[in-house]
Amino acid sequence: MNIVEVKNISKSYGKTTALDDLSFEVAGGELFGFIGPDGAGKTSLFRILTTLTKPDCGTANVLGMDVIEDYRSLRPLLGYMPGQFALYQDLSVRENMNFFASVFGTSLEENYDLVAPIYSQLEKFEDRLAGALSGGMKQKLALSCALIHKPELLVLDEPTTGVDAVSRQEFWEMLRRLNDEGITVIASTPYMDEAGQCDRVALIDEGNILQIDTPENIVRSFRKPILAVKATSMYRLIKELRGYPWTHSVQPFGEYVHYTEQREEPNIDELEAYLTDAGLSGISIKPTSPDIEDSFIALMKDNHTHG
């Protein structure tokens, strides 16, 4: 059964198009990820799914209800965590929990089991004001507040933005646990390395969905061979590679540069000779296997050239 069914949704603000004729489905029990850069339209899409804004055209059906017609009966079934921390900074951890529990007609005690794995980490700060929590703690509190009324669908807008690497990993593990308990989760992130945490991901850019698939399939669909190139001067390396006649894409990737070629099989020796001639030192070139970031960048490049 599909929990979310979106058909041909568009949304623009003035002359800026945020969403351009989007369609997708999310099945019940999925951990579904939206991955894309800032300004891709993720937040606009989530605000439509959570009944906070209306699409210009198209329909969105969530939990079998229309987001415009049935918004009143839909809201209590949703848990939403906005991208910007939206709890009361001048209320304590406990007061925030109590407030959001009570407006949903429940209490922390009643649904404690559900939030326990997350909230237990916050309990020693119960009396601390939410504004005084660290980034990771804030996100845990926001997740607890979004969960307290046992929602059937959890919508999280960039929950790991501004959170350190360890907390990010921890956060995804929490989402996975909730998902195992039967809650469908839709989350967005600008970090491509987080794609692997999801059952399925949608790559989104400039209001278009470029691809929807499992992370493994997305990587597999990337056909071009990739070379990881390294040299002492990163800046000059990128510059020279861009000037190479066979270059298809050049993307910095940690201490390496990921390089793809227009030809089917790149010639490593030829490339090395070109770079040495250009006066670069410490050159190392080796084939590498693509990951989701390579796929995404390639897809984005296509999207830009065709659109």
Binding site: T50, T51, L52, R72, R75, P76, L78, Y80, P82, Q84, F85, A86, L87, Y88, Q89, F100, V103, F104, G105, C145
Partner: peptide, 13 residues
């Protein structure tokens, strides 16, 4: 201004 209205709007208030 501080965005809490977003969180309130998805509640049954």
């Amino acid at each position: 201004e501080i965005g809490t209205i977003e969180q309130l709007n998805v509640t049954p208030i």
